[in-house]
């Protein structure tokens, strides 16, 4: 839950951060675009979000087919 929630929160916040900064967020002069790019891989690596959900639902007693 911690891995999934943390990484997806980072992805969502960096996306919103881009929006708040408008055109500047898209420029390499600012760090926000880097956060946006970095966060994108963190929801995939070290067990994707989908794998985390599989682990959680298995722990809730639901069989994985």
């Amino acid at each position: 839950m911690a891995k999934l929630f943390g990484s997806e929160t980072y992805a969502r916040l960096s996306n919103q951060g881009m929006q708040i900064m408008g055109g500047y967020g898209y420029s390499l002069e600012y760090d926000m675009q880097r956060h946006f790019r970095d966060s994108r891989i963190i929801t995939v690596s070290a067990g994707s979000s989908q794998m985390q959900r599989t682990v959680i639902s298995r722990a809730m007693g639901l069989k994985v087919v």
């Binding site: 929630f5 985390q52 599989t54 959680i56 639902s57 639901l62 994985v64 087919v65």
Partner: peptide, 23 residues
């Protein structure tokens, strides 16, 4: 022919619900 909890669509809904509740 099987519990709906064995479908990933339901598993992921429940997992998301559990994450939010624990947070």
């Amino acid at each position: 022919g099987r519990p709906i909890g064995s479908f990933q669509a339901i598993q992921f809904m429940l997992a998301d619900m559990a994450i939010l509740t624990e947070a």
